[in-house]
Amino acid sequence: MNQYPEIEVKNLTKNINSKQILTDINFKLNHKSHLVIIGGSGAGKSMLIKCILGLQSLSEGKVYFKGNNVSIKNERPEFLKQIGVCFQGNALFDSYKVWENVAFEKIHTKQLMSRKIARDNAVAKLLEVGLPTETADLYPFELSGGMQKRVGIARAIFSNPDILFFDEPTTGLDPLMSRKIIALIKEIMASSMKSAITITHDINLALSLASEILLLHEGHVEWSGLKTQIFKTKSKLIKEFLKGTIK
């Protein structure tokens, strides 16, 4: 029924001040697949996500969402309704309570949801990501880093989006908390049957989440393919990354 991939990036190039940051990026995000974009610091991962989301303009190329060109401004609101983004630093609104953060889109975009119902829904989402009801009325700065990450995830999945974006979901968390967050993301992906793009520099995270992997290096796609193919590749960089794997 869906002949189009969820997201298709075609010939995406991004220059800032005549410096090329992303060069001719092409990839597809298929249904129910989890694409992990991996790369070292400064490879351009965050920039790529920002270009896809429309937070940065493209110098060249196009981004399609279900066949619609969302690099055109007019097509974007529909696109934004169907995605959820979990930011690297969580980006919670510190002047709003936790539940208001989670239900933000519903409270503020006039989608006719009473505060009472919005709050109930938010509390339900908080429980889903493993946070007790009491956290709903706290402010984000009253929570630990791991809890804030969960709130960020709850906000991203609140309106049941078709595509989730996770920017470095485990950075800044201790190993135990990282594992818990990874398990949570896996659980969400398994139960929602939706697609996701995660960016990370951590090969272990990539291997445990991904169905497909894309290696970004100095702004271009160095390798991309199914996770299962990654051990067979001859790419030197992939091998470098894999050396970091804990078997």
Binding site: G84, V85, Q88, H108, T109
Partner: peptide, 11 residues
Amino acid sequence: EQLDALYTLNT
């Protein structure tokens, strides 16, 4: 990144 977050929340 709160401004980016606002934007992705359609605001």
